[in-house]
Amino acid sequence: MADTVADVPIVVVGLMGAGKTSVSELLGEALNRPVRDSDDYLEKRYGITAAAIAETAGVTELHAREAEHLLDSLAERPAPIIAAAASVLDDPRCREALKPALVVWLDAEPEFIAKKIEEKPHRPRFGKKPLDLAKELYERRAASFAEVADLRFKRPKMSKHEVARAILDHLKKQAG
């Protein structure tokens, strides 16, 4: 792989539960690059989950911390694989900082996301039923995801392993 491709951060975006962490870990292992995950960062740095931050400090503070994670991770070298919170697209600084990165959108339907929200208590629900929340988030963020994404994969139509393989194939083509 050419150095220029190896120096580009890969940012995996999508709604919570789309598979960002798993895909990022598969890519990190295959490319021997560090992985930076928003949920892990929040728990390690603040000692509580994203859901607990939203509940105790508020949604605005949660989103500020998620943006901080992305911006700090994008500045790292070697360039990491970043599983970013969907909220980072609401921050103009983050959207600008994503421009030189390879941005991968894991696009999942609200019904799939709702099931994933129900399965994991660390995911914030913002006082809503999982399906209602997933529909609202999809409506609010799909256009932003489409705008910043260099690659888009439908989940669960493609498995996490298939998505990772497709990204690796894309990188090989880019490297020439």
Rank of each mutant, 00 (worst) to 15 (best):
E61S: 08
E111Y: 02
R165C: 00
V5H: 02
H63G: 03
I53R: 01
L31H: 11
C94S: 15
F126Q: 01
H122T: 14
D91E: 08
G19R: 06
K44A: 14
P156C: 10
S87V: 05
K116L: 01
W105M: 09
R123T: 06
A52M: 07
I81G: 11
K115G: 06
P156D: 07
A50P: 10
V5E: 14
H161S: 06
G14V: 06
K20H: 01
G58E: 11
E139Y: 10
Y138V: 07
E61N: 08
R125I: 04
N32A: 15
K160W: 13
I81P: 13
L62H: 04
L168Y: 09
A149T: 13
R95M: 10
V104N: 09
Y138S: 12
L98M: 08
V23L: 09
V11P: 04
N32F: 01
D107E: 14
L31M: 10
S24C: 11
E76T: 05
V13P: 00
E25T: 10
A79S: 12
R165M: 07
M1T: 13
E118F: 00
D72C: 02
D107L: 08
E29N: 07
A108K: 01
A79M: 06
A57N: 07
E96Y: 05
E162N: 01
I117L: 12
K173Y: 04
P34D: 07
A146N: 06
S159E: 03
P9H: 09
D72Y: 02
P92W: 13
K172W: 04
A101M: 08
A52E: 14
D90I: 01
V13N: 02
L42V: 15
E118K: 11
E66Q: 08
A30Q: 09
C94V: 04
A134F: 09
N32K: 14
P110D: 07
G58A: 08
M158E: 12
V5A: 11
L171T: 05
R65S: 05
V59W: 01
D3W: 01
L31D: 04
L89E: 03
D150K: 15
V59M: 03
V11Q: 10
I53Q: 00
A67F: 01
P121T: 15
L71Y: 10
